[in-house]
Amino acid sequence: MDQPASPPTKMGVSVTSRATEGSAAAAPVKVSAQNVDVFYGEKHAIKGVSINIPERSVTAFIGPSGCGKSTFLRCINRMNDLIEGCRVTGRILLDDDDINDRSVDVVLLRARVGMVFQKPNPFPKSIYDNVAYGPKIHGLARTRAEMDAIVEQSLRKAALWDEVKDRLKEPGTGLSGGQQQRLCIARAIAVSPEVILMDEPCSALDPIATARIEELIDELRQNYTIIIVTHSMQQAARVSQQTAFFHLGNLVETGSTEFMFTNPHDQRTQDYITGRFG
C-alpha cells in the first residue's frame, strides 16, 4: 500500500518481466510460461505472467501475501483443475509441450511435475506406504525389493531415513511437523519427477528442520528443477539461483537471485526486499 501503482524505477524502465540477467542465463529452459492469466470466477489472480524457468536449478517465487505465488505455482502441474471456477489462459510449456493441451495426460504431467504443499499432508497410512504410493500407482517398481529400494533412496534423499528406518510401518501422521514435511518431500521425489514445486515448505518448521530442507533442496538441484515459494528473503537468497517477484498478480521482476537482491530494478521489488511492505 506504500507503493500503489508501478512508478518508474531508478533506471527509468517499468516492465513486468525482465529477461534473465547474470549467471543462470545459460541453462536450458525447463518450464516456460507465456502470458498466463488465472481467474477465480471474476477475480483476476494472475495477470499476463511470462517467465522462463531454467533446468536443474532453484527458482524462488517471492512477493507479498495474496499476490498469486501459490496460484501460479499450481498452474504448473494443473492443480488448479481441482478448484471450482478457476480458469487458466495462456501457454505453459514443459520441455516445449503445452501442458494445457488436450493431448496431455494430466496424470503423466503430475508424475513429471511433483509438488510439496505448504502444510505437510502425509496420508494417514504408514511411512512406507506414504512413500511407496506414487511408485505403486505409476508401476515404477516390479518387485517388492525394487519398491523397498525406491522407498529407502527417497527417504535418504529427504534426509529422513535415519530417523524412520526402524518405524516404517508406523503412521506417517505420527511424525513431527518437520519430519512430516520431509516425508512429503520423499513422497514427491519417489516418483522421480523432473520438476518439483514447493509451496512454502519451511513455513511451519523450526530453524534446524529448515536448514536440513534447504540443504536437501541444494542437493536436489543436481537432478531436479525446483521452484520454491518462500516468504523468507534469506531463504530465497540462500537456496535459489533465480528469483521472481510477484505483486498483485503481476510478475514484477525476475532475474538471478544475486542480482535481484543486490540491484533490483523495480522500486516495488526494492521495497519488498528491504522489508518496507508485504
Binding site: M79, F123, G134
Partner: peptide
C-alpha cells in the same frame, strides 16, 4: 480434508484412485 485429495492428486493419482485409495 482437501489436503489428502491434493496430496494424492499431486502425485499423479487419477480421480478414481484418489477416491478409492
Amino acid at each position: 480434508p482437501p489436503s489428502i485429495r491434493e496430496a494424492a492428486t499431486g502425485l499423479g493419482a487419477s480421480r478414481v484412485q484418489v477416491v478409492f485409495h
